[in-house]
Design a binder for these strands. Sequence first.
DNA 1: AGGGTGACGGGCC
DNA 2: GGGCCCGCCACCC
Length: 111
Amino acid sequence: MSRDDDCVLILAVVRRIPRGRVATYGQVAAQAGFPKRPRLAGYALSHLPTGHDLPWHRVINAQGRPSFDPEGPAYRQQLQRLADEGVPNVDGRIDLARYRWQPQSSAPVLD
DNA sequence: AGGGTGACGGGCC
DNA sequence: GGGCCCGCCACCC
């Protein structure tokens, strides 16, 4: 019950992040059923097969930044992709309070 | 078997 | 705000 199985669950959550929104690693992991294990989300995303169609760029860290070397290309590419779909950043930081994905199914309101 | 390494995060100072 | 430390745990020597 590890590795591939867990990754599938993580990636399934990433796939649901809508355009124009972002989610943190911790958020994705928790939603996939792995609270307190943000690194699992990081692991899953770091081993994506080439040619995948997952919106990997919509996953950022809890500080609201891409978890890449700010000097490297991946960092800028992620920001670029987000900007292209309407998620702005100020100096590489995204306003999580405003753009965080809030799945409606996380806390069903019943009465 | 043991130590190091992450696309992390929270707590502290 | 920023930096450090530590918990976390799958993986890879």
